[in-house]
């Protein structure tokens, strides 16, 4: 269970408050207008932005004092999710241990994760030798080996076409979610939210609202979200 308790975030002039709970194992779409604070919220949970006040609790433990890598959190950014000078396998293996020389066992796990996302045998390729969809799959494979219970995705598939994006979301659901991970996914697309998410967490006008069932919210959005959804 993720609890944001009296959380106040400040980035420059921008302010965001959050007081909410996300149940364990839920797939949550974080939605709201651009500049509303979705990325800021994810940054704080991942540990890149120290809160001005409040606590971020996971399974009862406050994450705020922990360094990003020490949190039970895996994250995919909007872009630059792979190191261009490392092979797909090395990129995946970095999810196990920050080293360029994985052990035999670590290699096997990385290979298995690559196979799981449909990239069996492509471990020796560099990111530039992979298509955009394949690059996303490598990043997903790294999330799989990381085995972090809380996964944050900041529009990671936004650069892909609609069909590929749907495919990646389905794959995310099949692999990550099947293992019981809790997912916060920033998306602009109501279709994505419907396809993947159980809950929607609206972030509007400097406030992150408690998550509500996706279908109900999309069918009857509150006024602030209605303007955004159109």
């Amino acid at each position: 269970m993720l609890v944001l308790e009296g959380l106040h975030l400040r980035a420059g002039d921008f302010r965001l408050t959050a007081d909410l709970t996300v149940p364990k194992g839920a797939a949550v779409a974080v939605m709201g207008p651009s500049g509303g604070g979705k990325s800021t919220l994810l940054s704080a949970i991942a540990g890149f932005l120290a809160p001005a006040a409040g606590r971020i609790l996971w399974a009862g433990r406050d994450l705020v004092p922990l360094a990003p890598a020490a949190r039970p959190v895996g994250i995919l950014f909007q872009d630059n999710n792979l190191f261009p000078h490392l092979t797909a396998l090395q990129n995946v293996a970095l999810g196990l241990r920050p080293s360029l020389r994985p052990t035999e066992a670590e290699r096997d796990r990385a290979e298995a994760a690559l196979a799981q996302v449909g990239l069996a045998g492509l471990g020796k390729r560099y990111p530039a030798e992979l298509s955009g969809g394949q690059q996303s799959r490598v990043a997903l494979a790294r999330l799989l080996v990381q085995e972090r219970p809380l996964v944050l995705m900041d529009e990671p598939f936004a650069a892909l076409g609609p069909a590929l994006r749907a495919e990646m979301l389905a794959l995310t659901r099949q692999t990550l979610m099947a293992r019981g991970a809790t997912l916060l996914l920033v998306t602009h697309d109501p279709g994505d939210a419907r396809a993947l998410a159980d809950l929607i967490l609206p972030v509007v006008e400097g406030r992150a609202h408690p998550p509500r069932p996706a279908a109900a919210l999309l069918d009857d959005p509150p006024p602030a979200l209605r303007a955004y959804l159109g």
Partner: peptide
């Protein structure tokens, strides 16, 4: 700027950051 946050998220810090990220790039 491009890869710092990812490296931090993966716990690549200190000398390792120099060897894995900075020097090759």
């Amino acid at each position: 700027a491009r890869h710092g946050r990812l490296a931090t998220a993966l716990g690549i810090t200190g000398w390792r950051r120099l060897r894995i990220l900075i020097l090759p790039l």
